[in-house]
Simulated assay, not measured.
Amino acid sequence: MAYQQERYIAELAVQRASILTQKVFFEKAKGTVSKDDKSPVTIGDFGAQALIIQAIRKNFPNDEIVAEEEASSLREDKALSAEIWRLVKDIKLEDAESDKILGGPIASEESMLDIIDEGKSAGGPKGRIWALDPIDGTKGFLRGGQYAVCLGLIVDGDVKVGAIGTPNLPVDDAAPIDASTGAQQTSTSANGVLFSAVQGEGATSRPLSNGTLAESKSISMRPVPDIAQAVFCEGVEAAHSAQGDNAAVAERLGITAPSVRLDSQAKYCSIARGAGDIYLRLPVKKDYQEKIWDHAAGDIIVREAGGQVTDIYGNRLDFSKGRTLAANKGVVAAPKALQDQVIDAVKVVLKL
C-alpha cells in the first residue's frame, strides 16, 4: 500500500506537535483575557512548525514544505525566540522509539530557527510538497475551543496523505459538538482526536496520545436520506465565511437545524466522522484566495470518508497552483449523494 510510511510519520509528527500546543495553551493562553495578546498563538505556531518540519526533514529530506510561518521576525525578537525554544526543547513523545523516528530533540535554538525557515516552498504542480498549518483556528485555540494541527502531502498537485490533530474535539464520535466544545478543557478531559487518510485507503480516527499511536478505527460520513435533516458546519469567524449566505443556502435546502460553528479544519473532521454533514466556506471577499495549508489535509480526509469537496462552482480543489487555491472560490464539502443539491443551492444564493 502506497504512502503508509508518509501517513505514519505525519500522524506521529502531528501528535508530537499537539503535545506542544496543549502545553502552550495551559501555560500561556488559559486565562488570556485580551484577544489582542497573540503571543500564545505565535509561540504555538512557530514551535509546532519547527517540530513537524524536523520530522519531515528527518524522514523525507528531499520533499518541499509549504508552511505558514517563517523565522525572520523571531531572529529580531530574541526574547520571543528564547521563549519558544524553552518550550520546544523538552517536547518529546513518551515512547522513545517513536520520538527517535521523528528526529529526537531539536539540537539548538539556532537550529530551530533554521528548521522553521524550511517551509518556504512556492508549491506548484510537480513533486512532493507538504502543506503545513501548525495551528489552524487561532481564535479557537485562544478561547480553548476548536483548533487543529494540519499536515497534508501533495504529490504532483494531488493530495495523497492528510493528518489532522484536534486536541479539543471529543474522542466519542457521537458526542454533540458546538462552538463551546472543549472550552472548559482540562488536560485530563476525554478530548483529543488524530484523523488521517491516504488516497484510496479510507479515513481513520484515533485518540491523540503522548506516546505511540493509539488504536485507529475507520470513519465515514453518515447517510443523510433527507437533505432537510442535514447539519451544517461553518466557521465561527464571520470574516472567514459568509454566514448570511450560509443560512440562505440552508433555508433553500429546507434545513432547519441550527448550524454548528467551529474554528479550523475540525469542521472537515467533524463531517468526515458523521458529527455534521455539510461544510460551507462561502467567499467573503471577491479576490480572496484560500491557502493550501487550510484545506489539503481536510480535503482528503473528507473525500476518503465518502464525501466530496469542491469550490462553489462544483470544481475539485486544485492544489497545483502554488501556495493558494488560486483556481477556486470558496469550499463546499458534503456527502457525495448530496453534493450536487448543495452546489445548486449555493449557485442560486450567490447568483452564479
Results as ranks from 00 to 15, higher is better:
K267G: 04
P258M: 08
A247H: 13
G254C: 05
V260I: 15
A248P: 03
C269H: 02
A250Q: 04
D245L: 12
Q265I: 07
D245S: 15
V249L: 07
N246Q: 09
A250V: 01
T256D: 04
S270R: 03
S270L: 04
T256A: 12
D245E: 14
K267D: 07
K267V: 05
S241F: 03
Q265D: 12
R252K: 14
Q265T: 14
C269F: 01
S259K: 10
S241M: 09
D263S: 14
Y268E: 09
A248N: 11
D245T: 11
P258A: 13
S259V: 02
R261L: 07
L262K: 05
R252G: 15
K267E: 11
P258W: 03
S270F: 01
A247K: 12
L262N: 10
A247C: 10
G244R: 03
G244C: 02
S264F: 06
L253N: 06
K267R: 13
A242T: 08
Q243W: 03
A257N: 12
K267T: 05
A250H: 00
L262P: 07
C269M: 08
V249G: 14
E251H: 09
A250K: 06
R261W: 01
A247I: 12
A266C: 14
A242S: 12
D245Y: 11
D263Q: 09
L262H: 04
S241Y: 08
Y268P: 07
N246P: 01
A250N: 00
A242M: 05
L262V: 10
Q265E: 14
A266P: 08
D263K: 00
Q243M: 07
V249I: 15
D245G: 13
G244E: 09
S259Y: 00
R252D: 15
S270M: 09
A248R: 10
A257M: 05
K267L: 09
Q243I: 09
A266V: 13
D245F: 09
G244M: 09
T256I: 06
R261D: 06
R252N: 15
K267H: 02
G254P: 02
L253F: 01
D263H: 12
D263P: 00
D263V: 08
D263M: 04
Y268K: 04
V249P: 13
Y268C: 12
S259M: 08
A242H: 13
E251T: 10
C269Y: 01
S259F: 00
L262I: 11
S270G: 07
S270K: 02
A242C: 08
T256H: 04
N246I: 11
N246T: 13
R252T: 15
P258V: 06
Y268D: 10
L253W: 03
C269N: 10
A247S: 14
A266T: 14
Q265R: 00
Q265N: 11
K267W: 01
A242N: 15
G244A: 05
T256N: 08
S270E: 03
S264Y: 05
P258D: 12
D263C: 10
V249D: 15
S259D: 05
I255S: 05
S264A: 15
D245Q: 14
R252E: 13
R261H: 09
T256C: 01
L262G: 05
L253S: 05
N246C: 12
A242R: 07
